[in-house]
Nucleic acid binder design. Sequence first.
DNA 1: GTTTATGATTTGTG
DNA 2: CACAAATCATAAAC
Length: 349
Amino acid sequence: ILSENRSLSIRGAQEEDPPDPQLMRLDNMLLAEGVSGPEKGGGSAAAAAAAAASGGASDNSIEHSDYRAKLTQIRQIYHTELEKYEQACNEFTTHVMNLLREQSRTRPISPKEIERMVGIIHRKFSSIQMQLKQSTCEAVMILRSRFLDARRKRRNFSKQATEILNEYFYSHLSNPYPSEEAKEELAKKCSITVSQVSNWFGNKRIRYKKNIGKFQEEANLYAAKTAVTAAHAVAAAVQNSQTNSPTTPNSGSSGSFNLPNSGDMFLSMQSLNGDSYQGAQVGANVQSQVDTLRHVISQTAGYSEALGGNTMYSPHGLNANGGWHDTTTPSAVISPTEGPGSVHSDTSN
DNA sequence: GTTTATGATTTGTG
DNA sequence: CACAAATCATAAAC
């Protein structure tokens, strides 16, 4: 009898004589969510995530890994608790049986009474199990709602991803519109989706334009980051006017990029950007670096922050009215540093 | 707690 | 459809 009871209680997770519809619902849901399903490996819900994670499809592995971790956690708790209850149930049953057996020596105990006792015990424990399942379901639901509704659970991108994006943005300030291809590349590098990249650039553009002053520091930082290589490129292109090597990056805390002869440098840059050199040897591929360098140089050339407003140095291709795109331009303001040669065809990558 | 930063969404335009 | 702009909702900082 005892062994029979044990096996019954072990199996007894779902089968109660009255097939409680609520219980069935819970069980089905837990099974569907992969909580009560196969221990490891691929749950039904985890299948997609697993494919994304191992398949190298950078799409949403990051988003789902978190989800999966939490789900696993829930599953573990669920199983642990379930096991605990079963064990407790068995122990308690045994205990009661022993008690009854002992009492049977002093007074007659009918098998019916024993059966009744066992029934009571099992009902008690299965109601506990029900509660367990219910709360587990609840937890899964909450988890799901938090992860399904992307807007609710906003995760910041990793520092690294932000670095990469900013680097691209500030080194293409004159035309911060990555091509589809470039977006894909960025997405891959940042482990985010292409649309996330698009979102990021959309937000960045509008917010940069809205308050350029606020982004000056950041712009300088990222400009300085690539300034070394940019300086090299420019220096190679403009062989003259190279008195001193641009010193060390200087980890520009307050934009102190110590250029030796900024004025001259700036002039050469202008001519470079203007016409004379444009097509010759340094083509558009230097343009991005010119962008970045110009920023630094203008800083060094005695340009205080935004407070006054950027008159002469209306930053990079952004005409004084604002807007890279120039839709229905009310006034054609020509950026002084931007010569006749407009900047497009960026030769990304 | 409040404020700021930031990713996502909605709306509107060409 | 890509984009700008406004807006939402949350994360992170204070």
